[in-house]
Design a protein around this nucleic acid. Structure first.
Lengths: 148, 148
DNA sequence: ATTTCATATTATAATCATTACACATTGAAA
DNA sequence: TTTCAATGTGTAATGATTATAATATGAAAT
């Protein structure tokens, strides 16, 4: 099953997807994965916890941490460390870079052709993960400040 | 004054360099900058503090934090966030990527030609900083494990 | 159905990096 | 030498994450 489509997924579909990827589904895990699918804005642990604890009053923040760790190990999510001291999570596993706007704090995804980057030095290295983080001011904030 | 050369710098030279870049020199600041120049291994705050507190017994970790913050604002150092929850610092301001070995935890610098990365989406964005972080296993660790 | 047992969840406490704050020190200008 | 701002220091507070121990769950075995 592909998770790319924007069509809402049923709990059954999500459970099956988790199982296929070696993660035993549970109510909490499924709901957390569902949240990540519906909020591809690189949420933090706290954002996930706050959003879901309304609907799942017993939810523990530890569970969110444990679940994201399990997702990471199963390679279902990617950690985004563009901010200091706050891990963010991304279900979009396609190759892309992240741009963080200093003003509005939005994190944008952008396409990235890594194959363009040749590097002889790393030829003898085993590269498992590539992260590209840019920072600056996004076009929205730029046009806002121009208007004043 | 260029700080690239590997030749040891006198306190006077370092003071002058800091002053030129808008940082008022003090004994602590000069010694911390000297440490960064002599240890381009992307040290953490704690590593800097531990190393220097022997020679400067009154040194406070807060001073290390404050000093690095001042260096950052003066654009004398670069923060490396390749590890979760631990900022590292780099006096090498040239364009380069960082590779972290999962096994030996060494952080390698590698050359990087960012101009190769074209991206239309970001054309309207103001990019101030670019960070490229790779992870995997370095050639040293690879050859070690092959031998067994 | 009941027991068993591993796994998942939860609440709490502990840890670690970082920041805030209040006070002490320095160093240069008046 | 007085003054004043900037710098340094020690301690406490913060915030994210991890460790731990107790409870709950859920499936296999009886």
């Amino acid at each position: 099953m592909k998770m790319e489509s924007t069509k809402p997924k049923s709990m059954e579909e999500l459970n099956q997807y988790l199982q296929e990827h070696g993660v035993k589904p549970s109510y909490q895990r499924t709901r957390i994965f569902e949240y990540l699918l519906n909020h591809m804005t690189h949420p933090t642990v706290d954002e996930i916890y706050q959003a879901l604890s309304d609907q799942i009053p017993t939810l523990s923040k530890t569970t969110v941490y444990n679940t994201l760790k399990a997702f990471m190990e199963a390679q279902l999510v990617r950690m985004v460390n563009i901010e200091d001291h706050e891990a963010r999570y991304d279900v979009d596993l396609s190759t892309h870079g992240h741009f963080k706007c200093e003003q509005c704090s939005t994190i944008y995804d952008f396409e990235l052709d890594m194959t363009q980057l040749k590097n002889e030095f790393l030829d003898t290295f085993l590269i498992k993960e590539r992260n590209v983080y840019y920072q600056g001011i996004c076009n929205q904030c730029l046009s806002k400040s121009k208007r004043h």
